[in-house]
């Protein structure tokens, strides 16, 4: 798994590549932008190949912590394979999911303005 971080219009975009499973999930949890509960981020999943339940757990845990402190985690560009994991586990309703990263960034900036 590789994590790439970008900044666009003041919003952090975290791009996840490769595989997230029990062995890589802790690395994801430790990542600065993801673990910081006050930072609103967009996670770009376009190049994520595989996600299992512990990876899902890491993402959900981080999203919960962000929500508690008033920040958000938005997801974008989910491919069909990853979407299916979110779908069968019933976790889709916890997230705002966009089909392009630019739209997610727009949404994140409006969220920040409204706060």
């Amino acid at each position: 798994m590789t994590i790439t971080e970008k900044l666009s219009s003041g919003i952090t975009i975290v791009e996840l590549c490769g595989t997230i499973d029990a062995s890589t999930a802790p690395e994801l949890q430790r990542h600065q932008a993801i673990s910081d509960p006050t930072r609103t981020i967009v996670i770009d999943l376009a190049r994520l190949d595989f996600l299992d339940s512990s990876g899902l757990g890491a993402i959900i845990g981080a999203a919960h912590r962000k929500e508690e402190s008033g920040a958000n985690m938005l997801l974008s560009c989910m491919n069909q394979k990853v979407r299916r994991v979110f779908d069968i586990t019933g976790t889709v309703r916890l997230f705002h999911i966009f089909d392009e990263t630019a739209a997610a960034i727009d949404y994140a900036t409006t969220l920040r303005k409204s706060q």
Partner: peptide, 17 residues
């Protein structure tokens, strides 16, 4: 694709831009 329970039409258009 999936939507959020709170989404209205503007959000739907935005999320599927």
């Amino acid at each position: 694709a999936n939507l959020h329970p709170s989404d209205g039409e503007p959000e739907l258009l935005r999320k599927n831009r």
